[in-house]
Design a protein around this nucleic acid. Structure first.
Lengths: 171, 171, 171, 171
DNA sequence: TATGAATGAGTGTTCATTCAT
DNA sequence: TATGAATGAACACTCATTCAT
C-alpha cells in the first residue's frame, strides 16, 4: 500500500472515530469524508461500503483496547487497578457504535471475543485477589462494565461509572 | 377535543409505542401510521413533526410509569418490592427511545423530573427501610436503574438487571 | 386509485415512453420525473424501482401493440397489410428498450408471448394467403421483423425496413 | 512511438475488444485496464477519454475487417462466398459497440466508409455474378447485413442470419 | 376532517477522469 | 512513464413533511 493511501486510510479511521464519538452512529459518509478532509470516493476505495467502515473501526477500537488492557494485565499492578484502567480507556473510545455493528460478522466477533477473554481474565484475577466482589459471575461483571462503557458519551468519572465500579468492589 | 380526535391520538400513541418497542427508534412515520390504521396526514394533524411525536410518546410512557410507581408507592408493600416493580414495569415500555429524545425539551424534562422524584422517594425509603444499600447516593442508584431500563430489548430478569439489582441490595 | 394518482401514473408512463424513444434506455429517473413534470418520489410511489418502471412500460407498449394488431387481424384486410400495419405501429413505440428488460420476468414474458402469438398467426395466414414467402419458418420471420422493429430510432419507411419487408414478399 | 508504448496501446485495444465482446458496452474503464493488465492512468495516456477509446477500438475493428474483406475480394472466390466470409468475420468482432459510437466523429466515419466501399463492391459484383438478388439496392443489402452483424452476441449461423442471407440469395 | 399522493432534500454508492507518487 | 489513489458529479432510492382530494 502506498504511503499516501495508508495515511488517508488512517485519516478516515481517525475522522470516523471522532465523529462517531461526537455525533453517534447516524453520521453520513459525506460527513465522515469531510471530517477526514477527503472525498467520498476515497472512503469507498478503502471500504467497500458503510458496514465495512463501521466494522473496521470497531475492530480498530477493539484491538487497541485489547492491546492496552493486555499490556496492563502483564504488569504487576493490582488487578483492580487494571480493571479501572480498562474502564478509563474504554470510555475514551466510540464504544457506543458497537451497538450498530453486526456482531455476527466474524471479522467483528473475533476481536470482541479476544477483548472479552482478556477482560474476563482480569475480572477473575481481581476476584481471586479479593478486590472484586466474588459473589457475581465474571460474565455478569463483564456485561455490567460493557453497559457502562457502551453508552454514548460515557466518561470514566461520571456518577454512573463510579457507582457501578463501587458496587463491584469487595468490602 | 372531539371524541374521535382523542381516539385517533390514542391509536397513534399506542401504535408508535408498539413499533418502537418492536423495531427500535428507526421506524418511518408511514410505518407508524400503518400500525395505527391511519394515514400519515392524521399523524401530522396530531403532532407537528417526528420529534413532537417522540416527545409525546415519551411523556406518555413516563407518566404511565410515574402513575404506576406512585400507586405502588402508596401501598404498604416493602419499598424494595416497589423498586423491583418499577424496574419490571419500566422494561415493558419503549424506554430505549428516550435516548433519542431531546431531554432539553421542557415538555419532556418535566415528566422525567416527576418520575425521578417518585422513584427517588422510593429509593430513599428503601435505604431507610434497610433493603437498599445506603452507601450509594440515591441519584446514583437512579442513574444505575435508568441504565438497566433504557437498553433496547431490556428485560427485568436478564442477567444484567439481576446483577445490578443484586448489587444494590443491602447485605 | 385516486383520480390524480391515475393521471400521474399515466403522465409517468407517457413521459418515460417518450424519453426512452428519444434518448434510449440510459435515462435517469430524475430525467423521467422532470419530463413528466413530477418529483422523483412520485415515480417511486408508482413503481418500486427502475426495473419495475421499465417492465411496466414494456408491458404497456406490448399490450397496446397486441391490441392494435389483434384488432387489425380481426378485420378482412389482406394479411400482408396486417403485417405491414404491425411494423408501422411497432416502430412508433420505444421497442428498443425491450432489449434492456429482463425477459425472464414473467410479467414481461407473458405479454411478449401474447404479442408473438398474434403476430405468428398473421404470419402464417399471410403465407397461406400467398403474400408472404412460404419458404421461411414463421418464427424466423418473426425474428426478422423484431430485429427491424427493435432498433433505436427505427422508422417504418427507412430503407432497412423496406428491404426486409420486400425480401419477405412472395414473388 | 516507443516500442513499449505501442505494445501497451495494443494491449488496451485487445483487452477492450475482448471485454466489449464478452460484457457489452457498459464496462468500466477500470475493468478494461485490469483486463489489459495496466493501470487506468495508462489508458488515459493513450486515449483522452472513454469516447476516444471506443472510437479507436471501432476503427481497429473496422480496419481489420476491411483488410480481411479486401483480401478476400482480391481472391478469385465466388463473390457470394466473399460476402459470406464478411458476415462470418464481422460477427466475431464487437460490432454491437458501434451503436454507441458517434458516427459523426470523422475518425470513425472514414473507416466506416472504407469498409462500406469494399463491401458494396462485393455486393455489386455478387449481383453481377448472379448469386445475390439484383432487385435490391446495394446500399439496402449493406444495411441489412449491418443489422445482422451489429447485434450483441450475433453469430453467423444463428437462424436470423441464415434467414437474411437466404433471403438475399438469387433463385 | 382524514387520506394518502406528491415533494425534494438527503443517503449510500459508482465511475469517468485527474493527479500525486 | 506507469500506477492506482483521489475526486466529485451523477445515480437509484428513502422518508419526513406538505398539500390536493
Amino acid at each position: 500500500m502506498r504511503a499516501d493511501a495508508r495515511r488517508n486510510r488512517e485519516l478516515i479511521v481517525r475522522a470516523a472515530t471522532r465523529v462517531f464519538m461526537a455525533d453517534g452512529e447516524a453520521v453520513s459518509m459525506e460527513d465522515i469524508a469531510r471530517a477526514a478532509g477527503l472525498g467520498v470516493g476515497t472512503l469507498y476505495r478503502h471500504f467497500p461500503d458503510r458496514a465495512a467502515l463501521l466494522a473496521l473501526i470497531s475492530c480498530d477500537v477493539l484491538s487497541r483496547l485489547t492491546a492496552r488492557t493486555a499490556s496492563a494485565a502483564a504488569s504487576d499492578l493490582p488487578r483492580w487497578e487494571v480493571l479501572l484502567g480498562y474502564v478509563r480507556d474504554a470510555v475514551q473510545e466510540p464504544f457506543a457504535m458497537l451497538k450498530s455493528v453486526p456482531v455476527d460478522d466474524p471479522d467483528v466477533a473475533e476481536p470482541v471475543a479476544r477483548l472479552h477473554a482478556v477482560v474476563l481474565d482480569v475480572i477473575k484475577a481481581a476476584q481471586a485477589e479479593g478486590s472484586l466482589r466474588a459473589d457475581i459471575e465474571p460474565a455478569a461483571v463483564l456485561d455490567l462494565l460493557s453497559l457502562v462503557v457502551c453508552r454514548q458519551g460515557a466518561r470514566a468519572d461520571d456518577p454512573l461509572a463510579l457507582v457501578v465500579l463501587d458496587g463491584l468492589r469487595s468490602r
